[in-house]
Amino acid sequence: MAGMSELRTVAVLGATGSIGTSALDVIARHPQRLRAGVLAAGCNVEALVALCRLHRPDHAVIADESRFEALRDGLREAGLPTQPHAGARALEELAAGDACDTVVAAIVGAAGLDSTLAAARAGKRLLLANKESLVLAGELLTAVARAAGATLIPIDSEHNAIFQCLRDGRVDAGVRRVVLTASGGPFRGRKRADLAGVTPAQAVAHPKWSMGPKISVDSATLMNKGLEVIEAHHLFGLPDARIDVLVHPQSLVHSLVEFDDGSTLAQLGLPDMRTALAVGLGWPQRIASGVAGLDLLAHGRLDFEPPDPDTFPCLRLARQALLAGGTAPATLNAANEVAVSAFLQGRIGFLDIPALVADTLSALPAAAATSLDELRAADAAARRFAGSTLPFHGSASA
């Protein structure tokens, strides 16, 4: 594996999204240490070609195979030697092959699962920004990474904070518990009755972070934090009882680790993903990220409060799925994706999101999940069930 004295070659999967863009910003600050060798995007050829002009990777991949000619022609017109590729198979082969030693896994949703597993299986340094890899297939991914000697560094600010607070990024015998912080989202302090009529625009207006619509709604329902509890369980090998959540509206303390001797270590910083990405790209060294230091005097105060489980039941549902194990987290995640999509389209109300997830978890009990095929089947079954009950939930919220 390349040390920081050598040049580290990075594949950025999901290069046109916010995390991909932030990763490329950090990479560009360190031309002697880091270079983008592979850039991958979903279907936006124009944005991908623009990034290739800037970063001159060896390979560019468009997931949508129908866009291959457009990518090939765009690269040719730009006079770039970058090789064009298309489709999921190309993505997996490049993530696992000699084109990179480090992979930023930032493809949103289940679409990012295969390439993430391929990189882990190949023993890469894997900067994990794809929640679904851990929520759907956490046991599988961590086992594969362990067996191949891959270095798994979480890029979610909360898990990255825990990683930074632990010796060598691993939980040892002296750790009592970890505490994930939550901003509380745009509806912090509201009661359940206040949320019946909230609009998608209100739910997407996150007070601290700039994120896509899906993850912004997850933050508003606290499902995001529930998924992070499941991720923390897989990343750090801790049971649900040793993973706590605190609402912290300033979003400056990203997470805390409490030790058996009574010490608590916390990681603080401005809410900017480039910090976590710089940790992943430079670890165990610290490298410049472009993020300013934290001026605590300017911020003045740090507040903490418990989450409200009655108003935001998604956190409780996620813990239920974690305890049930097997296919339950995949079911939770799929039902939530269907519900959030329906809410963003105006087909159901905000409070219907947890109701639909709860109904799906009840209807599809957890089964063992020893393979990716079983997890995909659970995901598909949950989507079918949640989709078939949408009209009912839509009329319930009207």
Rank of each mutant, 00 (worst) to 15 (best):
F304C: 09
T327Y: 04
P313H: 07
F312A: 09
L323I: 10
R274C: 10
T360W: 00
N336L: 08
A355Q: 03
E305R: 13
A368S: 14
F312R: 11
T311E: 07
G269T: 04
A328K: 12
S362L: 15
A355M: 08
R286L: 06
A369D: 06
L323S: 15
T275S: 15
A278K: 11
G269W: 14
D308E: 15
A355K: 08
N333E: 01
A355N: 06
L296V: 03
L302I: 15
F304S: 12
I353Q: 00
T360Q: 09
A288V: 06
D310G: 14
P307M: 11
S341M: 10
L317G: 02
R286S: 01
P365F: 01
P365V: 00
T370D: 12
G325C: 13
A318T: 00
V291C: 07
T327F: 06
L268Q: 04
A328N: 11
F312V: 04
A367P: 11
D272E: 13
A278H: 03
D295M: 13
R316F: 10
R301E: 13
D303W: 14
L297D: 09
L323N: 11
G346M: 14
G280K: 08
P284E: 10
S362K: 09
I353G: 04
A324L: 05
L296N: 09
L356P: 01
L281E: 01
E305N: 03
T311D: 12
A328I: 05
P271K: 06
C314R: 13
